[in-house]
Structures are given as structure tokens and as C-alpha cells.
Amino acid sequence: MATTEIRITGFGGQGVILCGHIIGKAAAIYNDQHATLTQSFGPEARGSACSAQVVVSTERVLYPYVTSPHILLAMSNDGYNTHKRHMAEGSILVCEKDLVKPDKRGKEGEVFAVPATRIAEELGRKIVLNIVMLGFFAAVTDLMPMEALRQSVESSVPTGTEELNLKAFDRGYEYGVALKEKTEIQV
């Protein structure tokens, strides 16, 4: 049984839950895996720290909560600081380059950072920051084929925004692929 625990963190309004939903749906609907999404949120609707947890497995997920994530996808420094201690040894940190400052006190092994806010702004809509993150996530992790995540983005975003979101996804993905190639060359 291969199980991957993922935590997505950021502040309310960034699309943290949607991010988790898209990852879980990609695994469960488009990649024949089991995926359980849970979320934790404060009573505030906007601005507060917020996180989504996805457990992806080849078998039925029995314990639904994430305890020590193998992947932390961080879109805010607060979120990173809150959750870095609980990461699994050698886990992957996927983060927004300008918003998250990894400080070596986390347990992360590899760190992958993407200037998702800047890319989203270039696309004209800062709101697609989370989808840029997902494209990047697809490139730098090998959790599932990129197509599964891309399909999940397409079927999860509001009608009429598919094109913009897929563009955001692709930009994030391309950035990730380029970064990975560079990393591999360096190694």
C-alpha cells in the first residue's frame, strides 16, 4: 500500500480548499486512486490560516486525517510556519516563492519554489495563483500524471474560466519542468 499525505496551506481566500479538491479529485476520479480530502478552517471566512489535507493511496483510505505530510504545498509563510514541524522526514515542500521563506527549521528534504503570484499577475488574474501552484505541483511531484490534474482543474473551476485556469496550470507546469531539468542537470 502506497500512501501519500499532502497538506495544502495558505490564508482564506487563496483557494486552498479548491487546491486540495482538485488534487483529490485528480487522484480519485482521473487516476484510479483513493483520495480523501479533509479541511480545517477557523470560523472566519477570509484571511485566517486555512489548510486542506489530502491522503492519496492505492487502497481505501481508512484514517482520513493527515498526520505527517509527505508533501507540503504552502502559499503563505504563516501556513508554512504552522505546519513545517509536522512534516515527514525527507518530505517535499512546494511553495510560493515570494510568499514563503523556508528557514531550514522545517523537516523538508527538497524544496520547490515557484513565483506563482507573479505568473498569475502576468496572466492578468492574481486569483489563479492556486492553479499555477497546482501546475507546478504536477511537474515537481510524481504523485500522478499531469493529465489527471489538468483534467481535474478543467472540471473543477467555475464555468467560463476554464481557459484562463488551464493557462495558469500550464504556466506553472512549464516552470516546474524547467526547474526540475535545471536541478537534475545541477545534480
Partner: peptide
């Protein structure tokens, strides 16, 4: 709450 807010296939 756990089942109510848990998303799965």
C-alpha cells in the same frame, strides 16, 4: 462533521 466534510469519490 468528519464524514460530512470529508471529500471522496
Amino acid at each position: 462533521e468528519c464524514v460530512g466534510h470529508m471529500t471522496e469519490k
